[in-house]
């Protein structure tokens, strides 16, 4: 396992770089947060979220909010690298490119979880429901992981195309459907207080797609960034 240590140190260097840049500018997180809150408020008008109607669609509203905010973060995270030629610098570094991918994906995951961590209680207060259920938090973690795993790969393709910003949602949404659908169903199950045997199939599907997306993206990232 001698090859593992430089891999992990390269990966954590990328994560550290992203976190530090974000800590100094606070651009991405604040944009994601404001956007997420706006989406929730707009949903309130659009869907007329009455208490009796709300219980059924909370999980859908929550995941649409997270997915939209996530797209914003993913786009930004790669656009920043592309803009000043930072990506070329990263690629020139004599490290495994999979480590760069995992580092970027992990940083994106942290941003998305941070947004979720703020959005969940706010949503709970605004609509008077309790969203801080342990099982639900695990679903949020797994759902965000799958979404970010495939999103980081696709955003690194999108920034290299002519239509960059508008391309990522078009590429990402249809592909991420299995993750989003199973996350919505599992979240809805927890919110409705269903038993584990009702939630378990969706939970399993979510885990399966997390594993598939992460490992495939890990394998093909090299051919996305090669010059």
């Amino acid at each position: 396992m001698s090859g593992l240590t430089p891999f992990i140190s390269a990966m954590s260097a990328v994560i550290w770089k992203d976190l530090r840049a974000e800590w100094r500018s606070r651009e991405v997180i604040s944009a994601m947060l404001v956007f997420a809150l706006l989406v929730i408020l707009i949903f309130n008008f659009a869907l007329d979220l009455q208490p009796n109607v709300r219980a059924g669609i909370s999980s859908g509203v929550l995941w649409v909010t997270l997915a939209f905010a996530g797209t914003l973060g993913l786009n930004r995270s790669m656009a920043v690298e592309k803009d000043r030629g930072c990506l070329d610098g990263l690629l020139l570094a004599p490290v495994d490119r999979a480590a760069i991918y995992l580092g970027k994906a992990f940083a994106n995951l942290l941003f998305m979880l941070l947004v979720a961590l703020i959005v969940l209680p706010v949503y709970g207060i605004l609509y008077n429901t309790n969203l801080l259920i342990p099982g639900l938090l695990v679903v949020i973690l797994l759902g965000s992981e799958g979404y970010v795993a495939v999103g980081t790969l696709l955003s690194s393709m999108a920034v290299q195309a002519r239509t960059r910003d508008i391309l990522l949602p078009i590429l990402l949404f249809p592909v991420a459907v299995p993750v989003v659908v199973s996350a919505v169903k599992a979240t809805g199950g927890y919110l409705a207080g269903l038993g584990w045997e009702e939630i378990q199939p969706w939970f399993t599907l979510l885990v399966v797609y997390d594993v598939i997306f992460t490992s495939v993206a890990f394998m093909v990232f090299d051919s996305v960034v090669e010059e």
Binding site: M157, Q160, A161, R162, V175, V177, Y209, F213, V216, S223
Partner: peptide, 30 residues
């Protein structure tokens, strides 16, 4: 459809082929 839009956004044939291949694999997973 997204696959075709991705391809139309890239001029360089070699890169277009690479991205197309990656997206065809990722897309088929769903």
């Amino acid at each position: 459809f997204a696959y075709l839009m991705l391809r139309s956004g890239i001029e360089e044939p070699e890169r277009r082929a690479r991205f197309g291949a990656v997206y065809a694999i990722i897309g088929f997973l769903s």
